[in-house]
Every structure is written in C-alpha cells, then in structure tokens.
Amino acid sequence: MRKNTWTGFVFASPWIVGFLLFTLYPIGASLYYGFTDFNVFQPPHYVGLDNYEGLLKDDLFWKSVRNTMYLTAVSTPINILFSLITAWLLNSRIRGLSIYRTVYYIPTIIPLAATSLLWMWIMNAQYGLLNAMLRWLGLPQPNWLADPALTKISMVVMGLWSVGNIIIIFLASLQEVPQSLYESASIDGAGAFRKFVRITLPWISPIILFQLIMQIINNLQYFTQAYFVVSSTNLNAGTSGGPENSLLFYALYLYHNAFQYFKMGKASAMAWILFVIAGVVTWIIFATSRKWVTYGGGD
C-alpha cells in the first residue's frame, strides 16, 4: 500500500511541482508584495497598508471599479438571457439544426485578440460594417469606440459574440429535462410560456446559478478586449483607458500598474481586493440561491 502511494506521488509530482511553483508561490508572493513598495528592479520594501490606503485615494482606481461594476451588471444578465434563449431555440426540432449549433459555437474557438480586432473593424465609425448598415437604413452612425457613452455598451455587444460555451451548457441542460413533464403539463392545458417558467427554469436553475457565478467572475476580470481596443488605436489620447478612461476596467488598471508603471505592490494589493470582492459576491449568490435554485429536478 505504501509503495503504491509513493508511486502515485511520483507520477503526480510534475503537477505538484508545477502547482507549488506557478500557483501557490505566486499567490503567497502577491500577498506579501501587497504590503511592500516593489518595482521589480529593487528589493521589496515593507510599507504596511500604504498600498491599500493609496488605492482608496486613487481616482483612477475608483473609475476602474465603477467601469467594471457597470460592465458586470449589464453584461452578465444579457449574456445569460441571450444564451438561454438561443439554447432554447437550438433545442427545437428543425432541419439543419447541427449547422446552426456549429455556427453559434465557432466564435468561441477564435482567439480573443482576433475577435477584438474583428469587432474594432465592425464598429469603426468611418468604414465599419455596423455603421454601413445604419447608413443604408438612414439611421445615425455613432462613434462606437470613441464616444465615452458608448464604449462600454460596445464591449457588451462584443461579448455576445463569444457566448457559445454558455449556449452549449444550457443546451445540454435543456435536453436533460424529462419530456414526460412537458407531456403532463400539456394534458393539463399549460402553454409554452407556462411550461418554460414552471418546468424548464426550475429544472435548469443549478446551471443558471453556475453560469451566473462564472459570468460575474469573468466580467470582474474583463481585460483582453478593452486592452486591444485601447492599445491598437489612438483612443487612449494620453490616458490608459480609452476616451475619458471609459474603458479603464479593473484588470486593465491592475495590468498598467504592474507592467507599465512597475508598481508591483500596488498591483498586488489590487489583485487581493478583487479576490475579496469576487469571494463576497460569490458567497452572497450562494447564500441567496436557496430561494430560487431547485436541485434534484424539483424533488
């Protein structure tokens, strides 16, 4: 038994070493650096809570928090609702269904960098496809990526392009709903909407909970699309977050502090603040989920 145990440890050692070196150590180091003044080129100097106190007085920090909270509050329900409706449509029995499912999933395998560049072309104010369509319809053509009032909405629209993974999970959960429940409801005279509310939603509510948590965590870490939009154009105009810092999301500001300003202590403090925020939000969702999540198919 002891020999088998050590044999298992030997085979698992690459993962264990990798976890210790590339996950556990960086986590511990970032916790320590959050209490230091560290610029990478010089040894860290302990400063206590100065980094955290400085963030509370940093206007750009609060701007990044507001931008991220706005994106999370708007994008999360839109992505979930759009994905659920699309999955419900893809669960119907129509010809060419496999083609439609493939079309909706393909964007998820495209790298976010390429997706960002594609949507920057689509939303270009002068020659973009979106404004060309609006021009053809005789409608106003907004400057999507340069108007501070529209930049975050543009990111939300861009995010709908890559919800294929969410759609697939919802589709799988919808196919697990027993058809006998729908047949019984039809005998009782229930319509499609009542079936969806009374049968479908309670049955897939654990999946909705999972997607809600994952979407919130992903949006709190929103980075790639905003980074490419700001870095690949002249929209920053002397700032680090696009027009009037409307694209300065939390993770982007953390990146600037760490790898542009070399304020590793401040960046580490921001990382742990984000960790606490994500943990608290997740705990609140789990605590309230007992009121609307049904496990065991409603049993």
Rank of each mutant, 00 (worst) to 15 (best):
S92K: 11
S64Y: 04
T86M: 05
T5Y: 15
Q42N: 09
G28D: 09
L90H: 00
P44R: 11
N67P: 00
L31K: 07
I78T: 02
G54Y: 13
Y46W: 15
G34F: 12
L55R: 06
A73E: 08
A73K: 12
T36Y: 00
D59W: 10
I27N: 06
I94Y: 13
A87M: 10
H45L: 08
V40N: 07
P14G: 03
Y32C: 08
K63L: 02
I78V: 05
G8L: 14
L31F: 13
W88F: 06
G18Q: 13
L81A: 10
K63S: 02
N79I: 12
V74K: 03
F82M: 11
G34T: 05
Y46T: 09
L89C: 13
K3A: 07
R66H: 13
N91I: 09
I85P: 01
F61E: 03
A73L: 09
T23N: 06
H45N: 07
Y32Q: 11
T5G: 09
I85S: 04
T68R: 09
K63M: 05
F19C: 06
P77M: 02
G18T: 13
P14R: 05
G96W: 09
G96L: 11
I99K: 07
V65Q: 00
T86H: 00
F22Y: 05
R2V: 11
F11L: 05
S75N: 13
P44Y: 12
L97C: 09
N51D: 03
N51G: 00
T68E: 06
L97R: 12
T7K: 11
Y70V: 13
V74E: 01
I27Q: 08
F82T: 04
S92T: 10
S30F: 06
S13L: 15
F22D: 07
R93A: 12
A73P: 08
I16V: 09
